[in-house]
Structure formats: C-alpha cells, structure tokens
Design a protein around this nucleic acid. Sequence first.
DNA 1: GTTGACCCTGCCCCAGGGGCAGGGTTCGAG
DNA 2: CTCGAACCCTGCCCCTGGGGCAGGGTCAAC
Lengths: 250, 250
Amino acid sequence: MSDALVGGRHLLTIGQLADYAGVTIKAVRVYHDRGLLPEPPRDSSGYRPYGAEHAIQLVKIRILVEAGVPLARIKELLEAGPERFTAALGEIDRNLRKRAEEIRRTRQRIAQLHSGDRLFVSAEVAGYLERLRQIAVSERTVLLERDLWILLQSVAPEQAAAWIADKLAAIADPEFATLYLDYDAAFDWSPDDPRLPALAERTRRWYAGRDGNAEPGPPPNPTITRLAGVAAGASSPAWARIAELAKEAR
Amino acid sequence: MSDALVGGRHLLTIGQLADYAGVTIKAVRVYHDRGLLPEPPRDSSGYRPYGAEHAIQLVKIRILVEAGVPLARIKELLEAGPERFTAALGEIDRNLRKRAEEIRRTRQRIAQLHSGDRLFVSAEVAGYLERLRQIAVSERTVLLERDLWILLQSVAPEQAAAWIADKLAAIADPEFATLYLDYDAAFDWSPDDPRLPALAERTRRWYAGRDGNAEPGPPPNPTITRLAGVAAGASSPAWARIAELAKEAR
DNA sequence: GTTGACCCTGCCCCAGGGGCAGGGTTCGAG
DNA sequence: CTCGAACCCTGCCCCTGGGGCAGGGTCAAC
C-alpha cells in the first residue's frame, strides 16, 4: 500500500526525484550512502518517499557534482554555514575557469597534432629544424636531428637549451650551413670514401675559427657528447668514420 | 650494467621519459599494459630503455588523454590510419567545445546557487513566485508554493506547465490577488474561525465567474488535486477547513 | 662499500557510479 | 479480480585512470 500521501509530506518516488534533478536512481542512492542527501524514513513497503526539500538538495548536489566538486567536499559544503558555502563557491568558480582555460589550450594542441614537430621539441629546436628544412637538408637528416634533440631534452634539458642556442647561431653562418649540407650528402657514402678526410678537416677548421672568436662555452658533458656521437654514428657509417678522423687529428 | 648506449638507440629511462612528457612513471606503465605505448625490450637488468619514438608517442597519448579521450579509444586512433585519425580529431575537438560550453553553463548555475529559487522551478513558476512576493504574500506561503510546484513538476511536468499558465493569469486579476492575500492571512486562523465560510464562498464565486468566461480547461488529475490539497491542508488547519467547506458546497 | 636515487613487480585502493540478479510493489487495463 | 508493465528494493561485481605501498634489485658517486 502506498503511504505517499498519508503524511502530506512525502510524495515522490526515487524515480520521480531522480528525473526531476536529471540524475540516475543509482546516483541518488550513492548520495544517501555518502551522507550527502538525507534518506527519508521508509514507507510501509520499504520505498523511500521524498519531499520537496530532497528535490532542492539534490539539485544543489547535481550542480556541484557537475562543477567537478568531489562528493566528500560537497558533503562538507552542504553541512557548513552559508558564509563558508559562499566562499567555497568562489573557489569552485575559479577552478571552473581554470578548466576552461585548459580546454582552450588542449584544443590548440589537438589542432597541431596532425602535423609538425612543435609538440615534441622546444620552440628553439623547432625553429632550428625549420631552418634546416629551409636550407634543403634532407627530411631524413632533419628527423634524425629531431629525435636527437628529443633525447637531449629528456636527458639534460639545461644542456640542451645551451646547445640549441649554439646551433642556431652556427646555422646562421653560411659556411656552416654549407658544411651541414655536405654532411647531409655524405650520409650514404662508404666509410672509405676519399672525400671524408677533407670534410673532417673543414669541420675542424670551422670549429677552430669559431672557438678562436667566441668563448669556449661550457665544457661538454661526456654523457651527452657520447649520446650525440653514438646516435649519429649508429645511423651512418660515413659519419662514424668522420668522428674517428676527428679524434685522430685531436 | 647499463646498456643504454650500447645499441645507440635506447637511451632514456622510464623516469626521464615520463618527465619529458609530463606524466608519471605509473601512467607510462599503464599505457604499456593497455597497449597504447609499445614496450621496449628490456635491457640486461630488466629496465625498459626508451628511444625518441617512444617520447613522441607518449606526448601524443598525453594530449589525447588530456582531451578526455578514453585510453581504449586512443589505442584505436593510434593504430588507425592518418585519415581516420584526423577525422577523429575533429570529433574530439567538437567534444572539447561542448565541454567548454557546459562549463560556461555550470558557472552560471554556481553563481545562482547562493540565492534564489530559479534553479529549482521552471522560469514560469519562478515568475509566479516573484509576483507573489511583489504583492506582499508572506515568505512562508511563497515557500510553501515553491515546494508544491517542485512536487508538481516532479510528478506531472505537463500538468504543472498547464496549471502554472492558469495561475499566472489568475494572479494578474486584482480580485484573485486580494483573495490570495486573505488566504495568506488565514493561514494561522483557528479552523473554527467565523470568517472562514465567507472566504470559502468568495473563492467559489471567483472560480464560478472565471469558468463561465473561459473554457473549463483539462479535467483535473485526481492524484494531483489531492496532492495540492493535502500539501496545503497539512500545513494549515484553517486551509484544510476551507477545503472541507468547499467540498460541502459542491 | 655504502648511500641515495632509480627501477622492478604485485597488490590493494579511490571516486562515481553502471549493470545485473533476484525479489517485492503498485497501478491501470481488461 | 487478476495480470502485466513499470517501479522499487538489496547486494554484488565491474569499469576507468591511475595512486600508494611493500619488498626487492640497480646505478652512480663519493
């Protein structure tokens, strides 16, 4: 038998209540379990009979849930006085604004995701790679560079930052750019190719000339130089040979 | 012993990789478990050695995760061809826009939360309640009305919509407004108060006059009339007495 | 050769519910 | 008056996206 109307106060079934607030029945029961919504005394058949005050409370709960407030915190807020409640609303709103801002940024990244390296390297490195493409370095070598910079940034972000500034300056020098293009071409050469010693020598001279002008810079971190050397050498036997020649000359 | 550099390819530890992508180590392992990120073959001490390709993939994953894409879907996307991928990005972006819009709406509701009934009743009912306050109905009675409308809207939204239109029209009639204010005053009267029969009679006449002019409207749903009657009667014995008098007169 | 920072696996825990089983209730139509 | 649909009840396990902790092996530097 329904006692919904007997007391003149309890009038809604859980389903009607849930529909009113735009919430599932399950959610209502969870809010009871978590102590967010007072559970009305059962009617004679074990149903929960709700009144308008439950509907009001439930709407408040739903709004806070949608704002991303954890249930435990919602409970605190509803139990606290109105001044605390209002203060908390300010913070909640700030969080919402922050989330909106994050969504904006995420949207930009999503848009960039379908092309480009910019997401994987710093802005400086991205500029450097772009410059390489401008001077017609092969895509293969550009990608090799990109991967190297990713590793450098992962292993030693500060060193990488210093190096990339150095590289950007170097690549602005037309002589270095020519040298770089010759390396690019040498990628597929045999390690016995007779042109390699000359290339090594030109490299040595370029560095000697530059280091004469500028300060020597930070002492190269051994792990990192090895990293760069190995990464390069593993891809091209000719490049590995040049590295050897450079070592002998030193 | 570290073999990180032995092959010239595997160079990052899981911690370096995670830091690079701005992700926890645990998350990286979860992505392995879920098949999102290929797990590199272990080095001789059981560590996972990562390369630049893992870093790239991980950044993509993180961006998609931040966009709210479920891991299972991310897996599909990364496995699918680029045309499918690009198409999916469009949908993801649409979802992000939708979420931003929802945040905007939630912010408005949060702002309204600290005061007002507008969140709990329809705009029409809110207007009606405001009108009651304008003609100086007691706050107690206004809240009683509000709760009643909440119940009505929960139990039978369509009926409630029809009724509120009716009520809005009625309250615009100064005679009905006067009648309403008298009811408001009668709330605390004794059920034996000698003024009650006259009030009941005025009510009957007002309704009779109106129903003569307009069409009788939808036949009142019995559940609902009972609901309204009981809700009112339970609060005020005098009102309950008026309801009895009305029944006798009919 | 020890110390602190990493890495490994495995296990349980969290929010915020969803889904399903297995059973009782209510309500309107026939 | 009965029957079926639509509700309601409890209880249990499941999901995502990890977090935390235990218990143990490794690396690198002094």
